Simulated assay, not measured.
Amino acid sequence: MASIFGPHRPHRPHRPHRPHRPYRPYQGKAQPALLVNATGDPRTTYESARTVRRMWPSSRLVTLRGADQHAVHGVFGSECVDTTVNTYLATGHLPPTDLACDRPSG
Protein backbone atom coordinates (compact mmCIF):
# COMPACT_ATOMS: atom_id res chain seq x y z
CA MET A 1 0.00 0.00 0.00
CA ALA A 2 1.43 3.38 -0.98
CA SER A 3 0.62 6.66 0.65
CA ILE A 4 1.18 10.26 -0.34
CA PHE A 5 4.30 10.20 1.85
CA GLY A 6 5.94 7.27 0.07
CA PRO A 7 5.77 3.49 0.16
CA HIS A 8 4.28 1.83 3.21
CA ARG A 9 6.87 0.13 5.40
CA PRO A 10 5.83 -2.11 8.25
CA HIS A 11 7.05 -1.26 11.73
CA ARG A 12 10.46 -2.70 12.39
CA PRO A 13 11.30 -3.56 15.98
CA HIS A 14 14.64 -2.56 17.47
CA ARG A 15 17.41 -4.71 16.09
CA PRO A 16 19.77 -6.07 18.76
CA HIS A 17 22.80 -5.90 16.46
CA ARG A 18 22.41 -2.12 16.23
CA PRO A 19 23.24 -0.54 19.58
CA HIS A 20 20.89 2.10 20.88
CA ARG A 21 22.54 5.52 21.05
CA PRO A 22 21.28 7.87 23.75
CA TYR A 23 20.08 11.33 22.70
CA ARG A 24 22.74 14.00 22.92
CA PRO A 25 21.82 17.66 22.54
CA TYR A 26 23.45 19.44 19.63
CA GLN A 27 26.98 20.41 20.62
CA GLY A 28 28.14 22.18 17.45
CA LYS A 29 27.80 25.79 16.38
CA ALA A 30 24.13 26.70 16.24
CA GLN A 31 22.82 28.69 13.30
CA PRO A 32 21.64 32.20 14.12
CA ALA A 33 17.90 32.60 14.59
CA LEU A 34 15.44 35.38 15.25
CA LEU A 35 13.25 34.73 18.30
CA VAL A 36 10.03 36.74 18.66
CA ASN A 37 8.05 36.84 21.88
CA ALA A 38 5.45 39.00 23.61
CA THR A 39 5.87 39.82 27.28
CA GLY A 40 2.37 38.49 28.03
CA ASP A 41 2.47 35.42 25.78
CA PRO A 42 0.22 32.82 27.47
CA ARG A 43 1.94 29.84 25.77
CA THR A 44 5.62 30.71 25.80
CA THR A 45 6.38 32.82 28.82
CA TYR A 46 8.71 35.75 28.34
CA GLU A 47 11.09 34.25 30.88
CA SER A 48 11.24 31.08 28.78
CA ALA A 49 12.05 33.13 25.68
CA ARG A 50 14.85 34.89 27.56
CA THR A 51 16.20 31.51 28.71
CA VAL A 52 16.28 30.23 25.13
CA ARG A 53 18.03 33.44 24.08
CA ARG A 54 20.71 32.94 26.74
CA MET A 55 21.19 29.31 25.71
CA TRP A 56 21.42 30.28 22.01
CA PRO A 57 24.04 33.06 21.91
CA SER A 58 23.96 33.45 18.12
CA SER A 59 20.24 34.33 18.22
CA ARG A 60 18.48 37.65 18.70
CA LEU A 61 15.27 38.25 20.65
CA VAL A 62 12.59 40.65 19.46
CA THR A 63 10.30 41.50 22.37
CA LEU A 64 6.83 42.98 21.97
CA ARG A 65 6.12 44.72 25.26
CA GLY A 66 2.57 44.81 26.56
CA ALA A 67 1.15 42.21 24.18
CA ASP A 68 -0.78 39.25 25.59
CA GLN A 69 -1.03 36.80 22.74
CA HIS A 70 1.12 34.05 21.24
CA ALA A 71 1.03 35.03 17.55
CA VAL A 72 2.83 38.32 17.04
CA HIS A 73 4.42 38.64 13.59
CA GLY A 74 1.95 39.67 10.91
CA VAL A 75 -0.97 39.37 13.31
CA PHE A 76 -0.62 41.85 16.14
CA GLY A 77 -0.04 44.96 14.04
CA SER A 78 3.37 45.99 15.35
CA GLU A 79 5.29 47.70 12.56
CA CYS A 80 8.47 47.33 14.64
CA VAL A 81 8.11 43.54 14.93
CA ASP A 82 6.83 43.01 11.38
CA THR A 83 9.62 45.05 9.77
CA THR A 84 12.31 43.30 11.80
CA VAL A 85 10.99 39.82 11.00
CA ASN A 86 10.36 40.61 7.32
CA THR A 87 13.88 42.01 6.95
CA TYR A 88 15.33 38.86 8.53
CA LEU A 89 13.27 36.59 6.27
CA ALA A 90 14.24 38.58 3.15
CA THR A 91 17.95 38.94 3.90
CA GLY A 92 18.87 36.32 6.48
CA HIS A 93 20.55 39.04 8.55
CA LEU A 94 19.76 39.41 12.24
CA PRO A 95 19.54 42.78 13.92
CA PRO A 96 22.85 43.67 15.60
CA THR A 97 21.29 43.45 19.09
CA ASP A 98 18.11 42.27 20.78
CA LEU A 99 15.18 44.58 20.11
CA ALA A 100 12.26 45.71 22.26
CA CYS A 101 9.12 47.01 20.51
CA ASP A 102 6.27 48.78 22.25
CA ARG A 103 2.70 47.61 21.84
CA PRO A 104 0.99 49.71 19.16
CA SER A 105 -1.61 52.10 20.53
CA GLY A 106 -5.14 51.94 19.32
Rank of each mutant, 00 (worst) to 15 (best):
M1R: 07
F5D: 13
G6K: 07
H8T: 14
H8W: 13
H8Q: 12
H8D: 10
H11P: 11
R12N: 15
R12E: 15
R12A: 15
P13L: 12
H14V: 12
R15D: 15
R15F: 08
P16K: 08
P16H: 08
H17M: 14
H20R: 14
R21G: 08
P22I: 14
Y23H: 15
R24I: 09
Q27F: 03
K29V: 15
A30W: 09
A30S: 11
A30L: 09
P32I: 04
P32S: 06
A33T: 10
A33R: 10
A33H: 09
L34N: 04
L35V: 10
L35P: 07
L35T: 05
V36T: 04
V36W: 01
V36L: 03
A38D: 00
A38Q: 00
G40K: 00
G40T: 01
P42C: 06
P42V: 07
R43W: 06
R43V: 10
T45M: 06
Y46G: 03
E47K: 11
S48Q: 10
V52R: 02
R54C: 06
M55Y: 06
M55Q: 11
P57R: 11
P57T: 04
P57H: 09
R60D: 03
L61V: 14
L61M: 09
V62G: 03
T63A: 11
T63I: 07
D68E: 09
D68M: 05
D68S: 06
D68I: 05
Q69E: 04
A71I: 12
V72R: 00
V75N: 10
S78Q: 05
E79T: 13
E79A: 12
V81R: 01
D82M: 05
D82I: 08
D82K: 05
D82E: 13
T83L: 11
T84A: 14
N86D: 15
T87A: 05
L89P: 02
L89T: 13
L89Q: 13
A90V: 02
T91V: 06
G92F: 06
G92Y: 07
H93Q: 13
P95L: 11
P95G: 12
P95Q: 13
P96S: 12
L99R: 14
L99N: 09
A100H: 13
C101T: 01
P104M: 05
